[in-house]
Structure formats: C-alpha cells, structure tokens
C-alpha cells in the first residue's frame, strides 16, 4: 500500500518533533490489520528522509497483533483469519480492540551536551 506517502507523513511528523536535532531512530507501532508492508516502508523512508534530520535514522517497528472482543460474552481473542464472529458464543457484535494502530510511538534524537562550565 502506497508506502511512499506514508513515509512522507512519518518524516513530516518526526521532523516536527525532532526540533532540529538529528534523529537516530523512529519507533512505530503497526497493527496487523493495517495494510502496511514494513519492508516497503523502510525502503521509502530511506528515500524520503534524505536531506532531512531523519536521514540515516533507523525505522524500528512493533507489529501489534489483531485482537477482537465480543460485546456479548466479553471473550477476547487474537484474530488469525478475518472472521469477526465470537468463537465462544457465536455472537456477531464484536469490536477490534487491537491491531488497527499505525502510529509513531517515539523517536530518539541526538542532542549536544549542555555546556555548564563558565567561559
């Protein structure tokens, strides 16, 4: 899925938070329900981050498994196949409780040591 525009969005957000400092890593949380291909994202991130403070930064990601909860019996389960019916009570009033994230959790930046010695 259009990882180029997603990478651009990531670089834009990270540059804003980096406040001029060089970024060494960007930590993402990617839910497995989102249609993102991490390898493509890494490739395009390398391209889009050139000549920004993100250039050379490592893209780390945590893949969040899809979890679904049944509103009827309270059962929660990890979704292996896209069947949104409760395996316990066959209820169909289910909601996604995890696996639809696609967020920048944090970044690591390099900062100059503060100079405290009097000149």
């Amino acid at each position: 899925m259009h990882e180029l525009s997603l990478s651009s969005a990531i670089v834009e957000t990270v540059v804003r938070h980096a406040d001029g400092h060089r970024v060494t890593s960007v930590n993402l949380r990617i839910g497995t329900l989102r249609q993102v291909v991490p390898a493509s994202l890494e490739f395009y991130f390398d391209v889009v981050s050139r000549e920004t403070v993100c250039e050379g930064a490592r893209l780390d990601y945590e893949l969040v498994p899809a979890r679904v909860g049944c509103s009827h019996c309270g059962n929660e389960w990890q979704l292996e196949v896209p069947l949104f019916v409760c395996p316990e009570c066959a209820g169909s009033d289910v909601r996604v409780v995890g696996g639809d994230e696609f967020e920048i959790d944090s970044i690591v930046i390099e900062e100059e040591e503060a100079c405290t010695a009097p000149t």
């Binding site: 997603l6 969005a9 990531i10 834009e12 957000t13 990270v14 938070h17 980096a18 400092h21 060494t24 993402l28 994230e101 696609f102 967020e103 920048i104 959790d105 944090s106 970044i107 690591v108 930046i109 390099e110 900062e111 100059e112 040591e113």
Partner: peptide, 15 residues
C-alpha cells in the same frame, strides 16, 4: 552528544 528519547504518540494518518 547524547541521545534523548522523545515520546510522539501520533497516528501516521492523523494529518
């Protein structure tokens, strides 16, 4: 130079 961890917590598609 030292490294600082900065919490972002923004959705990629928030914009």
């Amino acid at each position: 130079m030292h490294r600082t961890y900065v919490k972002v917590l923004e959705g990629v598609l928030d914009a």
